[in-house]
Amino acid sequence: MTRVLLTAHILEQLLEAGHQVVTTVRSEEKAQKIREAHNDLGRDVLDVVIVPDIAREDAFDEVVKTPGLEAVLHTASPFHYKWTDPLTEVVNPAVIGTTGILKALHRSAPGVKRVVITSSFAAILDETRLEDPAMVFSERTWNPVTIDDIHRSKPTAYRASKTLAERAAWDFVASNKPSFDLVTICPPLVLGPVVHHLASLDAINTSNERVVQMVRGDWKSAIPETGPPFLWIDVRDAARAHLRALDRPEAGGRRLFATAGRFCNAEIAKAARDNVPELKDRLPSAQVTGGEYPPADKFFGYDCSETNAILGIDWISLEKSVVDLITDIRSFGV
């Protein structure tokens, strides 16, 4: 059994695996929801600590002093486009949140032996080569975006935040030689069911918004363009990837590119039509077009074979992920 500091919510799988967990949240309201959902667990098994602003340099200074910490999963970084200033609202929380916790661990948590950080495929891709069939993105590929690019567009600002935060993490480890090793995980679009005690339909994550729109009937007459990156992973597999990165020695010092493969909005619509016939009046029929893959000469390649060899995950199918998410969405009254 390992005592793990979790800075977001891969919580259920950690508890199921028998770990002791210290998890951080940003508000007392969210903390109370977690406590109520796990009211049979004592603080020795699950402790909830409020860290209201991860963009503060000292945000994690106290929680890392928790006795017995052996590992850290840092997954807290904003992914949404509901902001006005990319530097203060997107880049700084990502970069300072990441470097802040690494500095605090280096100073005050000598018992921590592994840190797993959630990065993103956003830190791998190159916006200028998403339509280049000669380009093969892999664990070794880095997004060339810089801080000077953050005002280009909201997607670029988000991609910069993930790239700069992950680079800062690897630079910190290289420069400071801490007692822990580092693993970063770079998932693409994350789909799948939500944790009910932490979610509401209005606050559902950005990745899942497209399925909410479909269930509400917004795709009835036309399926929207999928948009890059045409790669995805189920949220439960993303959590599983973090746990395996935590437990497997060979993951240490590695950058992992975790994806179940390609998807498009047309496939999401088909999964819904085939499995949720009661939504027929809201869903696009088989004759409705849109949301398809680009032609082969406008499609990048990818290679995540190194990651698959380390993690050994049998990825959840897109069909199951979509159907399970629709079940959740409907439970909110849609």
Rank of each mutant, 00 (worst) to 15 (best):
R282T: 06
L279N: 05
G290H: 11
G312H: 05
L283T: 10
N308L: 06
A296I: 01
C304G: 09
G290L: 12
Y302D: 08
G290C: 11
E292V: 15
E278C: 01
I310V: 14
D303I: 00
T307M: 09
E306L: 13
N308I: 02
I313H: 08
P294R: 15
C304L: 03
E278V: 10
P294K: 09
L311H: 00
L311R: 00
G290F: 09
F299T: 14
T307F: 03
P284R: 03
Y293T: 06
G301Y: 06
K298A: 08
F299H: 08
A296G: 02
G312C: 03
G301H: 05
A286C: 06
K280P: 05
T289Q: 14
L283N: 08
C304K: 09
T289I: 09
K280N: 14
D303A: 03
K298E: 09
P294Y: 05
D281W: 03
I310A: 06
G291W: 00
E278M: 10
C304Q: 12
P294M: 04
V288I: 15
E292C: 10
D281C: 01
Q287N: 14
Q287W: 00
A286K: 11
A286V: 07
N308P: 03
G291Q: 00
G290S: 11
G312K: 02
S305F: 05
D303K: 02
K298Y: 07
I310D: 01
D297F: 12
P294F: 03
I313K: 11
P284S: 06
I310N: 01
Q287I: 07
A296Q: 08
L279A: 05
A286F: 04
P284Y: 01
Y302V: 06
A309T: 14
F300G: 00
Q287E: 15
E278D: 12
C304S: 15
D297W: 07
N308K: 14
D314F: 09
V288F: 00
